[in-house]
Design a protein around this nucleic acid. Structure first.
Lengths: 355, 355
DNA sequence: TTTTTTTACGCAATCGATGCCGATAACGAT
DNA sequence: ATCGTTATCGGCATCGATTGCGTAAAAAAA
């Protein structure tokens, strides 16, 4: 099987002790330049690489960080992971990714698996199902470094990275109002998720600001964040079968938006003529869709970067950290065709052509 | 900082030796049932977990496998990774993902990083840029377990998992012919990629079968697999500005397809009326797009599963493996609207409307 | 009672790398 | 000639867990 050269092999071959070889390789001044040269040349010739596992055992750290997200097959998270990676690899850290698939149980299992000392810290975005966070609390209480991003919890005091969900939702809703829509529904993820609460508040605030009464039946939460299509399908169908059907939807996530559009499509609903839609997304896909998707854009890559920098700062801190910060990044609404201005006449004409 | 309980702590607390504790926890018959009970209860109370790093050092294996792909923000690969994960975690393996972003250099760096003994084996899908595979050959020659999937090489003899790219491409092209298209272009990834060659051959075979002459200028390769938009944009523009403009495109990958559609959109080209398109994809997105994307579907999840099973078989094999297998999975063409039947009259009318 | 066997456990080496000491030799200083 | 200093290197313990071997005491056989 595969055997790599060790420091011991070099020592034996060169008639030195392992300590001398070790020091020679690290360029210690205690070693004569002749010996150093000999050792380094031999090491290069046989392509010596220090065994990272032995180093981990010795240094009591693995130089790897764990990422706990719901899914990587999601543009927001894969971009965030790219950001995480970009920082981590430069700082000499491996990245180990685990997916909860929006399941609380799998999240718990993954966290335990990662934390049983094979990673030095955790970057976490909670699953939609997660209501109890004991599995993180236990670790955090022991001093294990954790940074939350996007879907955070206020029950644990540590570094956090979020976007201004309130403002993003406010902007999205305001944009729909400006475009002439008044019956604006809100399709949201699980109600106890931090991002859901904040976005709901932003949505409500924009409505209030414009004198539009809040309508409870216009808000639909999906406990599983869109992972279960039937759940989402029911939510969307409930909305479109409402007596006073909404003329616009503010959808709070990529998966929700995409599935919502799928339901629209099979129901023969045209966007934006029948119902306009604004998403909350990181997807560059908005551009490729037909019609283009208006969306509140989140700086996913940057969130990953900032979270990783904070985590590494925690990991490498000499003394226990007690001062934590919450970094809030800004969203930006990108207007495309899915929320085109509501024009009664034009809408009517097009419908005739389409029908 | 975070310190976990070790076998030594248990030994000290209970007045035993570490060997006794170790054996008690593993249920050895050499330990009295009283002692066993005592040790196990203590371990449970303090939530003892064996240090995986120490185990790795002792057993000379890390129980982790490395994945080398171009991107995770790609439906095909994220699905494949889900398949990989589903097998790996059940067998007690961690999964470490690295992305080359279609860069040869980054692929080399990632492979070296992973292989310097922190992973027990590698699952690889080559980057588009990769022409030389010395970085894999070196490892493979030393007996390091590697399994290739999707984008493979025939220069290394090991387990491989692919789909029937030839037949997939053949089916896609035949489908376009059946739908009435005759001027079928082919948008492909880097020319030296295994999948590119096979798909090109399938495309050619279908043309020949139908008595359609092969037209060199109808085939466009993208060295960077669509990672560089300008490169792809040029390829697509070359095609649509051809004197004898194609009426259909067989596109060999998700990223190519999406970017191609983006170019179409900005050029005001309607699908399928102006140009039909068939993709090669794993994307469920085909359903969500407007019009729906006809695509050759690849069983990405299953590919990941099979590749992982083969890799673990390699890793856990007692003696050196010399018999290798190449698993070929089947594709399936999913017909949607982007390749709707070409109707001369209707097409003429619509073109006038569009123009 | 003596010998043999079994039970139940500890010692020490091992995995690879590091780092604190201690050892040795050369060399200058006194 | 003796001592102190410096340069250079080896010995050993360490990180956490496993395991072959040795051994004391208890149990069984003689």
């Amino acid at each position: 099987m595969y055997e790599a050269i060790t420091i011991k092999d070099i020592a034996k071959a060169l008639g030195l002790s392992t300590s001398t070889v070790s020091r020679a390789l690290r360029g210690s001044h205690e070693i004569s330049s002749d010996t150093k040269k000999m050792v380094i040349e031999y090491a290069e010739q046989f392509n010596y690489r220090p065994n990272p596992i032995a180093l981990s055992l010795k240094e009591r750290r693995s130089r790897s960080i764990g990422v706990v997200v719901c899914e990587i097959a999601n543009n927001f998270f894969s971009q965030a992971i790219n950001g995480i990676e970009s920082i981590a690899y430069n700082r000499g850290y491996h990245v180990i990714i685990s997916q909860s698939h929006e399941s609380y149980e799998r999240e718990v299992v993954n966290v335990e698996h990662l934390a049983s000392r094979s990673v030095d810290g955790l970057l976490v975005s909670l699953s939609t199902e997660t209501e109890h966070i004991e599995h993180f609390k236990n670790l955090h209480d022991k001093g294990f470094p954790i940074v939350f991003f996007d879907r955070i919890t206020d029950e644990i005091e540590t570094h956090k990275v979020v976007v201004d969900n309130y403002k993003g939702a406010y902007d999205a809703t305001q944009h729909l109002v400006d475009a002439g829509y008044k019956k604006i529904a809100h399709l949201a993820s699980s109600a106890h998720l931090s991002i859901s609460k904040e976005r709901l508040n932003g949505y409500k605030a924009a409505l209030a600001e414009n004198g539009i009464p809040f309508n409870e039946s216009y808000v639909k939460h999906c406990q599983h964040g869109g992972m279960i299509f039937t759940e989402l399908e029911k939510a969307v169908k409930d909305l479109i079968h409402l007596k006073d059907r909404p003329d616009a939807i503010f959808s709070a996530g990529d998966r929700l938006t995409l599935s919502c559009l799928a339901v629209f499509k099979s129901a023969g609903i045209k966007v934006p003529d029948d119902i306009a839609i604004v998403g909350f997304s990181n997807s560059t896909m908005g551009d490729l869709m037909n019609p283009g998707l208006t969306a509140v854009n989140q700086p996913a890559f940057e969130m990953g970067q900032v979270a990783t920098e904070l985590l590494i700062k925690l990991i490498e801190s000499k003394r226990a950290v007690t001062e934590f910060e919450t970094v809030v990044l800004h969203t930006e609404i990108i207007v495309r065709d899915s929320s085109a201005k509501k024009a009664e006449v034009k809408s009517g004409k097009e419908k005739k052509v389409a029908g």
